[in-house]
């Protein structure tokens, strides 16, 4: 319904405008701006400690924001609490500790829908269709799964409430190339099902190659932005992170 309208006259699903903020007194983010369009995969790359995770947490209300604004789907969500943001339609997969290790795969997914009321069987079917591997393992403890499967549990958990925007913090960290490609493929499938994705990636080359657009963050501020291809071809960026 509104998807076609959005495509006619695209309005960003997420706008971060000149956001400054951090954890304690010092600001980690020194004015970060970015936008995500509907059904777009946007990737943030940058060196370690650049503030990539912090930028993502800022969207999700986990960071004190000193100035700037975050607008989601036309609504200013700056300063909202995480559970309000979840209800509004954003899901977040943290970089580390992103599953309940002592709970089964199925229970992990169930926790993702904690705020939902009513029958969840449709949601489970949807997730298990997306991750056939998980269906077979649904009674296994998440802590006993391989790293790749654990990421799938984490992403599946985040998709249970049918968010409009998915935030993924380094979903491929520590995964084999095979799993990395699989996660990327899942991201595309999710995007094609109507969800926008903002993700942080350490594997800059591969991520830029697969995303729609990218941002390069360094020391808490925007450095470059553009389509994945443009960024890949930028010699400065190649020198910065892509190891030549």
């Amino acid at each position: 319904m509104s998807a076609t309208a959005a495509r006619d006259r695209p309005q960003p699903i997420l706008i971060m405008h000149q956001v400054r903020g951090g954890y304690g007194d010092a600001d980690i983010l020194q004015g970060v701006s970015l936008t995500v369009m509907p059904q777009e995969i946007v990737v943030i790359v940058g060196p370690n400690g650049a503030g990539k995770s912090t930028a993502m947490k800022a969207v999700f209300g986990l960071v004190r924001i000193r100035s700037g604004a975050i607008v989601f789907d036309g609504e200013d969500i700056t300063g909202w609490s995480p559970d309000r943001i979840v209800r509004r339609g954003i899901s977040y997969v943290p970089q580390v500790d992103n599953v309940f290790r002592e709970m089964t795969v199925h229970e992990n997914l169930e926790m993702g829908a904690f705020l939902a009321k009513g029958d969840l069987s449709a949601a489970f079917d949807r997730i298990y269709a997306l991750f056939p591997d998980l269906k077979a393992k649904r009674h296994a403890l998440a802590g006993d799964l391989s790293g790749g499967q654990r990421q799938m549990v984490a992403i599946g958990r985040a998709l249970m409430l049918e968010p409009q925007l998915l935030l993924l913090d380094e979903p491929t960290a520590g995964l084999s190339p095979k799993y990395m490609q699989q996660i990327f493929q899942i991201c595309r499938d999710v995007r094609d099902s109507g969800v926008s994705i903002l993700l942080v990636e350490q594997h800059a080359k591969q991520a830029l190659a697969f995303c729609d657009r990218g941002y390069v963050l360094a020391t808490g501020a925007n450095r470059h932005e553009g389509s994945g291809r443009e960024l890949l071809e930028n010699p400065e960026i190649a020198q910065m992170f892509l190891g030549g």
């Binding site: 979840v86 209800r87 943290p94 992103n98 309940f100 002592e102 926790m111 904690f114 958990r157």
Partner: peptide
């Protein structure tokens, strides 16, 4: 008990 931060992210 398992992961309090994640539980909060789930809206618990």
């Amino acid at each position: 008990s398992d992961n309090p931060d994640l539980a909060r992210l789930c809206g618990v």
